[in-house]
Simulated scan of single mutants.
Amino acid sequence: MKLFKTVDDKLKEIGFVKTKENEYGVEYEKTNATDTHEYIHKVCILHKSSGKHILQSYDPDLMDEKKVGNTCVGLTGYEMKLFLKKMKQIGLYSK
């Protein structure tokens, strides 16, 4: 039995599974289902050479109307808190 849960453990409890992690960042996916459709919620913490590292939350299968990029998916306060903690852990939190 673990005494303390890691950020990854807590994210897994709420459905986010880590799909990739390397020196440039980390990616998580969660499958969400509503009454009308099912979608993937992807969250990426990414390194940028400018030092302004980013957190992206989106549905990879859903493009916007102008075909510019994927549609944003919002995060709850708890989810955001966990992802920010992960950004700090891997050294990609920038002010």
Rank of each mutant, 00 (worst) to 15 (best):
I40A: 00
G91N: 04
M63F: 12
G77K: 12
S49T: 15
K86N: 02
S94K: 08
K67F: 11
L75M: 15
T34P: 05
P60Q: 08
K12Q: 14
L84W: 06
K81T: 14
D61K: 14
G25L: 03
K18M: 13
T19D: 05
C44F: 02
E79R: 03
T34C: 01
D35L: 13
K10L: 15
F4S: 11
K48M: 10
G91M: 08
L46G: 10
L92T: 06
Y58K: 03
K95H: 04
V68D: 07
K20V: 04
T34M: 01
E21Y: 00
H37I: 11
G91K: 11
V26P: 01
N32R: 13
H41P: 07
K18Q: 12
K12D: 11
V73E: 11
E13H: 05
D35P: 02
D59W: 02
L46F: 00
K95G: 05
M80Y: 09
T31Y: 09
L11M: 07
S57L: 09
M80T: 12
C72G: 01
L75R: 07
Y93T: 02
K81M: 12
S50K: 09
K81L: 10
Q89N: 12
Q56N: 13
Y58V: 04
H37R: 12
I54D: 05
K66E: 12
D64M: 05
D61W: 06
F83Q: 09
I54E: 11
K95P: 10
G25C: 09
V17G: 04
L46I: 09
I45Y: 03
Y39M: 06
P60H: 04
G15W: 07
